Amino acid sequence: MSGNKPNPFGIKLNSNTVVMKKDYVSTGQLTYVEGDIIEVEMSDLKSFNLGDKVKITIYSTGGIHVFESHVVAKANGSLIILNPPENNNKFAERREHPRIEVAEEGLLQAITEAKSQERRELEEPVNLTINNISISGIGFSMFGHFELANATQLEMEMKLSSTVPIQAEIVRREKKEYGYYYGAQFTNMSADQMNSLRAYVLKQQVETYYRTKEENKKREALNQAKAQAKAARA
């Protein structure tokens, strides 16, 4: 996973943010930026719907930033806005290419070994389990004794919301009790493949973020209740 990319001149979290659609305007705070999504917390969500085209105005110490986008989710007092590609490097606290934990299936169909550069189509596709995914690569597990070397080129199918054929190159591997865990970077992605992958990752990212946010709220509420009970007994 890519780390934070500090940008002292960029847009900072907690900046006041105006979200405007054709017939409505609401104000909130920028609370989260990662990959393709931006979260704006606000008290009034009822006038916004999924797919709405919106104009975003962020008032930051570095200036006023305006761009157009779309609403991709709303829940728990916040809107999730699609972060346009032209916003790259504008945010002070943004992580690129978030790696999302998943449990999906895939099939390895052919390999090209790094040393020989000889392509070998497998007689029987080998099953694999996709453990995590981003728009730049995947982590996957293979069971049994089938072993792949670093820099091996892969031709495979990922069974996501649809079947996505991809090519990838192994960049790391780790021996496990069940077999091997591999990290691979995508290569030679077509526009259609990238669009399918981006749509899947975006959906998973939004669902994971809201789920984690809700779990954190419950944990904080529980800790607060424990602290208050402890104070009452003191």
Score class of each variant (00 low, 15 high):
Thr112Lys: 14
Glu123Thr: 15
Leu128Cys: 04
Ala103Asn: 09
Leu148Trp: 07
Lys115Glu: 09
Ile111Leu: 05
Ser141Lys: 14
Lys90Phe: 13
Gln109Trp: 11
Ala103Thr: 10
Ser134Cys: 03
Glu124His: 09
Thr152Leu: 03
Ile80Lys: 01
Leu79Val: 10
Pro125Cys: 06
Ser141His: 12
Ala92Arg: 01
Asn150Cys: 04
Leu148Lys: 11
Val164Ala: 01
Ser134Asn: 04
Ile111Tyr: 02
Ala92Glu: 04
Arg94Ile: 11
Glu124Thr: 13
Lys159Ile: 08
Ala168Asp: 00
Gly106Ser: 04
Val171Gly: 03
Gln167Ile: 08
Thr129Pro: 10
Ile81Thr: 03
Arg119Ser: 11
Ile133Ser: 02
Val126Gln: 02
Arg94Trp: 04
Asn89Ser: 12
Leu122Cys: 09
Asn150Val: 09
Ile111Asn: 00
Leu148Glu: 00
Ser78Gln: 04
Glu101Phe: 09
Glu124Gln: 14
Asn87Trp: 09
Glu105Asp: 15
Glu86Phe: 06
Ile130Asp: 00
Pro85Ser: 12
Lys159Val: 08
Ala110Ile: 06
Gly77Asn: 05
Pro165Lys: 04
Lys115Asn: 08
Leu148Phe: 07
Ile130Arg: 10
Gly144Pro: 03
Ser116Cys: 14
Ser161Arg: 10
Asn132Met: 07
Glu121Asn: 15
Pro84Val: 12
Ala114Leu: 09
Ala92Ile: 03
Val164Asn: 02
His97Glu: 08
Asn127Thr: 13
Leu154Lys: 05
Asn83Phe: 03
Gln109Val: 08
Lys90Cys: 10
Arg119Phe: 05
Pro85Gly: 09
Arg95Asp: 12
Ile130Trp: 06
Leu82Met: 07
Asn127Arg: 15
Thr163Tyr: 09
Ile133Asn: 01
Lys159Phe: 10
Glu105Thr: 15
Glu93Lys: 04
Lys159Pro: 04
Glu96Phe: 02
Ser116Ala: 08
Ile81Gly: 02
Ile170His: 01
Val171Ile: 10
Asn76Ile: 12
Glu121Leu: 13
Val102Thr: 15
Glu113Trp: 07
Ile166His: 00
Val164Thr: 07
Gln117His: 13
His145Ser: 13
Met142Ser: 01
Ala114Asp: 13
Thr163Gln: 13
Glu96Ala: 03
Ser116Gly: 08
Phe140Ser: 00
Phe140Gln: 01
Phe91Pro: 00
Ser136Val: 11
Ala103Asp: 08
Ile100Phe: 04
Pro84Asn: 14
Leu160His: 03
Ile170Asn: 00
Gln109Asn: 15
Ile111Gly: 02
Pro84Glu: 15
Ser162Met: 14
Phe146Gly: 12
Phe146Ala: 11
Gln117Pro: 05
Ala92Thr: 01
Asn127Lys: 15
Leu154Gln: 02
Ile170Met: 03
Leu160Glu: 01
